[in-house]
């Protein structure tokens, strides 16, 4: 087993909500709370959860696009949160982010060739060399640079734009890609093209992926290990197979049961859980899932359950599995 390429411990981010004439803090959005995980070199770790669970904030904390309030992040043995700005620039070459919305994340005034070459220029590569490398990468992601290189983002389809984003993230030869809902806005037929491309690139370039999605099927398909997040906390983590075969946390179970079966003969009998995910502003005390949980006990309101190992590498933060601990 290789050592962790990326490790996070006790990561926390609470955003203040200000209001009134004095702009005093009125409430806190508890976006990410006490999140800890490891990503080993070469693996794909999937992060799955519904809106407001903190998965996108988490990606931004790992890159320090948003500064965490507390916690540690190590990348390749280096303390990311202590890195000086010059060092941070170097670290970000190795950790690249691919955003969800390919419409909003490309500069409309740059041709796609320039968009891909841009980060090389920022990092001091000569223009001719940068352009050459950009053209090579565009070719690799399936966009012939002779046909597409001089086009602008609005001339491309959503799938093509997402390919540009992937080329742009790869142009600095990173070790790790943080993929934030990379296929969510794409049609299913195009989604499969991009997923296959990501799998090929990962093997070719020995990449490590952190793959964020709300789509359980996609997460199960691409990931070696999966973290399930709910309102800022990791409620369960384990191998993709272990989670699919025997999800333990009541929320993970509900998430799997809610996904359509793709079989008209096996329709859902009843909705697995009621209600919407609560607002991350002032979330429930204790276990944040307790307000929607069928098994909630009095102690669930008192303190958040700590993760318990139910099997090797399979952790669950739920009091139902407390006896395993003792």
């Amino acid at each position: 087993m290789s050592v962790a390429l990326l490790e996070a411990r006790g990561l926390r981010k609470h955003f203040p909500l200000r209001g009134g004439v004095l702009q005093r803090t009125r409430a806190w959005v508890r976006a990410v709370d006490e999140v800890a995980f490891q990503v080993r070199a070469g693996e794909t770790v999937g992060i799955v959860g519904e809106s407001g669970c903190g998965k996108s904030t988490l990606a931004r904390l790992l890159l320090r696009l948003v500064e965490p309030d507390a916690g540690h992040v190590w990348f390749d043995g280096e303390d990311v949160l202590r890195a000086l700005p010059s060092r941070m620039k170097r670290l970000r070459r190795d950790m690249q982010l691919v955003f969800q919305d390919p419409h909003a994340s490309l500069n409309p005034r740059l041709t796609i060739e320039d968009a891909v070459a841009f980060s090389l220029l920022v990092h001091g590569v000569r223009r001719a060399e940068a352009r050459e490398k950009a053209r090579m990468l565009l070719g690799r992601v399936g966009l012939d640079p002779r046909l597409y290189g001089r086009r602008y983002p609005h001339e491309l389809s959503g799938g093509q734009r997402q390919r540009v984003n992937i080329a742009r993230a790869l142009v600095l030869d990173p070790k790790l890609l943080l993929l934030d809902e990379p296929v969510s806005s794409l049609d299913k037929s195009v989604q499969a093209q991009v997923l296959n491309l990501l799998q090929e690139l990962k093997a070719e370039r020995a990449l490590t992926y952190v793959f964020i999605s709300h789509d359980l099927n996609v997460i199960e398909y691409v990931s070696d290990r999966v973290l399930v997040m709910y309102l800022g906390r990791v409620v369960e983590s384990g191998t993709a197979d272990a989670l699919a075969e025997s999800p333990k946390h009541p929320y993970t179970q509900a998430l799997y049961a809610s996904a359509p079966s793709m079989d008209p003969d096996r329709r859902m009998e009843r909705p697995p859980i009621a209600g919407d995910p609560p607002n991350p502003i002032n979330p429930p005390s204790g276990c944040r899932f307790r307000t929607r949980c069928a098994f909630a006990m009095p102690k669930c309101a008192e303190a958040a359950p700590a993760p318990v190992a139910v099997a090797a590498g399979h952790d669950v933060a739920c009091y139902l599995y407390d006896e395993v601990r003792t």
Partner: peptide, 13 residues
């Protein structure tokens, strides 16, 4: 379309 339990099987786009 990605389905449950499809891990390891190639998608045919």
């Amino acid at each position: 379309t990605v389905r449950r339990r499809q891990k390891g099987k190639a998608l045919v786009p």
